[in-house]
């Protein structure tokens, strides 16, 4: 279901919990599907002993993909025209993420959205924006 301009106003928002208690196995799934096998995402021994991080952590693109799920659920299938983010904090196994889209403009059949994803400590992990085609 696509959004309709006649039912939207600036400031409207949509939130979803896009992952609860992120597992190392889901990070492995993402490595396999995306082809990004950087061991900092899946190899605890390398990451803690050679790279100097407290544990493996999620690919930024996994967090963007999780955030994208919230967006497509909101704007409808195949409606996105733009989606961009900055990765502001790392995402760790065990994290629970909530992704939110907030309407910032509606014009010429396009909705502009502010996009933010936060973890269970209300720390922002992704910040960005998106645009999608909407119905009249």
């Amino acid at each position: 279901m696509a959004l309709s301009a006649s039912h939207l106003k600036v400031g409207d928002s949509h939130s979803e919990t896009v992952v609860e208690n992120l597992t190392r196995t889901q990070i492995v799934q993402y490595a396999g599907a995306s082809g990004d096998y950087n061991p900092i995402h899946t190899d605890e021994m390398y990451t803690t002993k050679a790279a100097g991080y407290p544990s493996v952590f999620a690919h930024g693109m996994l967090t963007m993909g999780l955030t994208g799920k919230m967006l497509t659920n909101y704007v409808g299938d195949g409606r996105l025209t733009k989606f961009g983010v900055r990765f502001t904090n790392q995402v760790w196994p065990g994290d629970t993420l909530v992704a939110t889209a907030t309407v910032t403009a509606i014009e010429n059949g396009v909705v502009a959205l502010d996009v933010a994803t936060t973890n269970q400590d209300s720390k922002e992990v992704v910040r960005g924006s998106a645009e999608a085609r909407i119905d009249p």
């Binding site: 950087n38 900092i40 390398y46 050679a50 790279a51 100097g52 690919h59 930024g60 693109m61 963007m64 195949g78 996105l80 025209t81 733009k82 989606f83 961009g84 983010v85 900055r86 990765f87 960005g128």
Partner: peptide
Amino acid sequence: APSAGGLHAEQHFEYHR
């Protein structure tokens, strides 16, 4: 081992179809 290595800072997509 490579130093701290690379991280992803930003990603932007424009969808034409």
